[in-house]
Design a protein around this nucleic acid. Sequence first.
DNA 1: CTGAAAGCGCTTACAG
DNA 2: CTGAAAGCGCTTACAG
Lengths: 336, 336
Amino acid sequence: MRATIYDVAKEAGVSIATVSHVLNGKGKISRERREEIRRIIERMNYQPSAIASALTSKKTFTLGLLIPDISNPFFAELARAVEDEGQRLGYSLFICSTDNQDRKVESYAALLRQKGVDGVIVGTGVDRLSSLAPLLERSIPVVFVSRECPDAPGIPSVVSDDYAGGAAAARHLLGLGHRRFAVIAESEAVSSSRERVRGFRDTLRDAGPLPPVKLERAVGIREGRQQALKLLRAPDRPTAIFCCNDLIAIGLLQGAKELGLRIPADCSVVGFDDTILASVTDPPLTTVAQPIERIGHSVIRQLVQSAEGRAFERERLVLEPSLTVRASTAPPSSLG
Amino acid sequence: MRATIYDVAKEAGVSIATVSHVLNGKGKISRERREEIRRIIERMNYQPSAIASALTSKKTFTLGLLIPDISNPFFAELARAVEDEGQRLGYSLFICSTDNQDRKVESYAALLRQKGVDGVIVGTGVDRLSSLAPLLERSIPVVFVSRECPDAPGIPSVVSDDYAGGAAAARHLLGLGHRRFAVIAESEAVSSSRERVRGFRDTLRDAGPLPPVKLERAVGIREGRQQALKLLRAPDRPTAIFCCNDLIAIGLLQGAKELGLRIPADCSVVGFDDTILASVTDPPLTTVAQPIERIGHSVIRQLVQSAEGRAFERERLVLEPSLTVRASTAPPSSLG
DNA sequence: CTGAAAGCGCTTACAG
DNA sequence: CTGAAAGCGCTTACAG
């Protein structure tokens, strides 16, 4: 069997309490003893069992990451940032893809509770806050990322400034000379999407009188393509379309191509997120870049602070997005 | 405090052993008692601590997934398949991105050991098998996925038939009428890449005398683009290029565009993997599809079998790839 | 069919 | 500065 704390205590001729103390840098141990014990630990290749230690100390140094789908590039990139910062702070990560289904959210929440995680990052849509009950009941720290839950006061969150992102998209397009716009948004239930649209529209409104902005809804590439076909076939075709995420924008690109339309010559398109997908399309997408890495790092720090009982710096951290201009936007070919 | 097994035992007027038995479906408990205890468990909302249970039973129902980078779409898609099947079988997943650095592999391996995982899936490159020592020493079950380690006899693996995939790419291109080929491969150290090239070349050789096949190396989009520029600028430009992964193929698409070349009219390109990226480029990529979902499911089953002490069905499971034909391949414009 | 008891490998007051 | 001892919440022979 592998070495336990008893083995090294015996070898060192001390009590297990002493070994535990040097392991955790607690208590006062004389320098010599400490170094002697360190050497023995090294020599025996002893590594404490995280399980036994969790049972007594109630800390597992493990976190849960609840997201809709790890195979979605946005969440995969977010997961990487979260993983890296977690690792730096000594935490491991359970990955939980929920497909935005409350049933799965709840079953993962119960599982994470049983496994004794120190905290949970929630990046998945949660219809009923009660899906998180297994966590909340046991006061396991939770922080939302990239989404918010209106009826969850007191739960901290880390988000992009979606309103500002939508506004940036509008300013870019306005600056290019566009005047006839459309938007393809996600579901009305998604708060981030609502904010993006609001920022976009408010900015247009401030720019003076403009033709009405058509709004369609989609989730993912396929629906994005369908809505694109609808919008692009209309007689008063918009010269610029703002899509609330890159997937929708990609669907739009595909729809436009089917219709023989050139992007950006016939229609400019702006996406949102700036995952790797945006750099790979043709033309590469102009898109509002979420600071995914900073979001991931911040959310972990927020959670760990809260798991370690320190006060939050803030309950809601809003990070600024920035516009990444690529080749899917240009001035309208016939101004007006 | 939350309820423990003692609380429900007291409530039910039985011993904790009895409660434990009904929890685990072990031992013989009279029907009435069993149902009575079930009701009490339900009512008290008791859920056993996975930590305490792991300490005694030595099983954590937790696995580690060691991959180069969760933000790489191939591994993200693989992770999703692994997660789903793991979940179905009752296992949670720690995600570990190693960037193919032995240092990180080793530190994650040590961490996973400490946390007492029941098994580890290794999809990351491992230069020295000794990086996995923390696992192997404790005989924690390991299975390789999508890569193999030649000096690791006895460690099971689940892979695509890379040779067959390379061959399929060659047959497709040959069938289209191509005769002047090039290949952009990954590093010679990557076994899967070697096999893909070998399958591709062998198939060409069997097709009769052909001009020599140029071979360049790249990893990722940027280098793929560079090698593409080199290949496409040469006087005897190939009419078809086989890339050992989709990322390289995407770089090639970008390089071709810069040179004003049309794909597939001026040059056909075949990728490998068929991640979401391949469906999003313009033109969409013809690519050898790895059965990512089946790979992920199989590797978990293989690992769980081994973790539960059952014999392997086989030590090496080889799944067949298939060619996904999209729009990046066509007959050469000037035959010959 | 059921229970008393040992044990898993740690941490943490507490006493000295 | 160091150790004896209790306790974390389970599982598992073993005895009856």
